[in-house]
Design a protein around this nucleic acid. Structure first.
Lengths: 209, 209, 209, 209
DNA sequence: CATGAATGAGATTTCATTCAT
DNA sequence: TATGAATGAAATCTCATTCAT
């Protein structure tokens, strides 16, 4: 009710498309709504409006709303998966690559940011969605921890520091950095290079004798 | 009135309490629900069930649901406010004090964690709630930045490192640490001392000559 | 909800009064609300506010809201009853007296107007209230018809005219006159004398040879 | 969505009709309820029962209850508009035509009577409905006044009589006549001809020299 | 006598979902 | 494939009324 006038009508996508084409359209629309208006606005009606079809048509392509959310989550998972760099090279370089790829992804797809950090989505997505989301997050965690472990072995990062906690530092920094630089116009923009430079110095040890 | 049909009224049994007592009970229940089930489950019915009163009774104590959420937010704000240490002492000590206080708070009140990090609560809380929440978050940011700035001036933290980004590191670490150690049974528990030790070493510079 | 702010607090009548005193206060308040805001706003809460007591206190003095409305109706009935002039004198004079008394009453108690003409009140008041209301209206009808009948007998009004229809003319004129001159600031005010003059001329026959 | 619990959905049996058909059905039902049971009973549930659809279905065809009432009012307005006779002919003839048309309308559509005379509908209808209703009433007033003014000019009605008050007489008579002859079984039925005959004689002046 | 707390019924409205066309 | 009509469940909120204090 609050915001009743929504004149943004999509350009009326060509009618009658195949399910194979509609499904990603709907999942993307869900992602967009999730990002711009929040889970509370992700309704069949809103979704239909965004895609340019009737709300009831959603259910020709997905069994129910839960499936739609699941599909949206899976799109995020794919995008996030693509940010994992190849397993070769020096560990801190791999970590930097992930860092850059994540920041870039969040800039191109701010929707993903919301999904990835929204701890509440779990409840929207139901148990299955939560599971998949957790899985993806675990994957990131494992990748980061592996990099750090190797970096300690190779002496790039002081071996005296608790690995788990180092992982928290890296993940936390990434989270806040993404949240602080994505979005319409960040208050204090920093380039990925600047951010990584600081983080790498911290990890390597910054004190010169 | 309207209809004049007055069917069986139940004897209205249970507890009677004063509004002064009920209001915090309701606000706390809201916080608990928010934490355990998410904003989507924060309904008057659920709230009533949690408190042990009828859903309609909620509205004797709060004008509407928005006011309930606002009250819940304010409880969080008070708790968070209390974690700011006095402004004296060395900057990194002040930072550590905040760090410990926040971790302790989140252990005692895991609900707060959810609220404080839920980016979507804004939509639940409405514009006013969002404003208050942002205000509190800004406050933390400013406190941390001030500590880091002083620490740089005093030479505890390398002056060459970008202050803003350092702030992201600290806030991020705190966020992830809280999320990783609060909750029912954390996978890899760490004491606040351990966490802070790592973070402080990173900030001071860990490389020995 | 629409109009939430109602700063008009009554001067806080002395607390603790006897039922005998409270009952008329409540009935009058009901009348006032009915007049100013309509039947839809006649709620126990509003009533309590108007009287200066709690809503639940209403039910110490009246069994339920229906009784309150009934009491309000009875107050109107009393007021209307007092407008019936004595049965002596010439019939058109008696009619004029009623006319004047009714107009005066409606000016002093505009609430009455609303009640008396609100055909819908019947539904608010329930069957009993409707009955009493009809009774009062019947009384007026009979009085007017009696006057007109005698006037015809005495030759003041042409005997050729249908008595029933003449009654409709008189009652209709009275109704519209009251509605048009009562109220805050009537668009085209007329004095009772002016109104009656026209009506009497019509009844007596205005055509001069 | 929110909860994902999807209990037994009934097979959703009865009639399917187009919105174009449903809207007038609903508006008419509203009119009927308004007439028979009063504004207090005009609820979505009652409306649905009257039309034969679920209450929630109302809101597929009208945005909210206010729109329903507005639609009902507009139906009345159309019906009343159609009772205005063409502007030619002698003024008293035009007046008689309106008189007859109104009486006929009220016999065919007794609901209209209630709406047209319900002074409290304004609160049910909201400001916009009240405005439209007032507009229609003004229109009648102006038409009647114009007829009377011309009739005075042409000498059909004594010029000495106050025009405004004459208008009140005519409108009042029409109101009471309608109320007295419409409805299930009027106590003292009169034909439109009989009613008009009396009124016209009064207006023209009945006294023979 | 007075009140504040409590409540069940019901009103409006939203929403996911089904079904006939 | 697409849709509009229909629906039951649930959410928010109002209100008359009861009861313990």
């Amino acid at each position: 009710m609050r915001d009743m006038k929504r004149p943004t009508r999509k350009p009326a996508a060509p009618r009658r498309q195949r399910t194979e084409d509609r499904r990603p359209q709907i999942a993307d629309a869900a992602l967009r709504i999730l990002a711009s208006k929040g889970a509370g606005h992700l309704t069949a009606a809103e979704l239909g409006r965004e895609v340019g079809i009737a709300d009831s048509t959603i259910f020709r392509h997905y069994r129910d709303m839960e499936e739609v959310v699941l599909a949206a989550i899976d799109r995020v998972r794919v995008l996030l998966d693509e940010t994992f760099p190849p397993a070769d090279g020096r560990p801190l370089d791999r970590l930097r690559a992930l860092f850059f790829a994540r920041l870039a992804l969040m800039h191109q797809h701010p929707e993903v940011l919301r999904l990835a950090t929204s701890d509440r989505l779990e409840q929207v997505a139901g148990p299955e969605g939560a599971r998949r989301l957790r899985e993806t997050i675990q994957q990131s965690r494992r990748f980061i921890d592996a990099c750090l472990r190797e970096a300690q072995v190779e002496g790039d990062v002081p071996a005296s520091l608790d690995l788990t906690i180092l992982g928290w530092v890296v993940r936390g920094t990434l989270q806040v950095a993404v949240a602080s630089t994505a979005g319409p116009r960040p208050a204090e923009p920093r380039t990925p290079e600047e951010i990584w430079a600081v983080l790498e110095k911290l990890l390597r040890g910054t004190r010169t004798p």
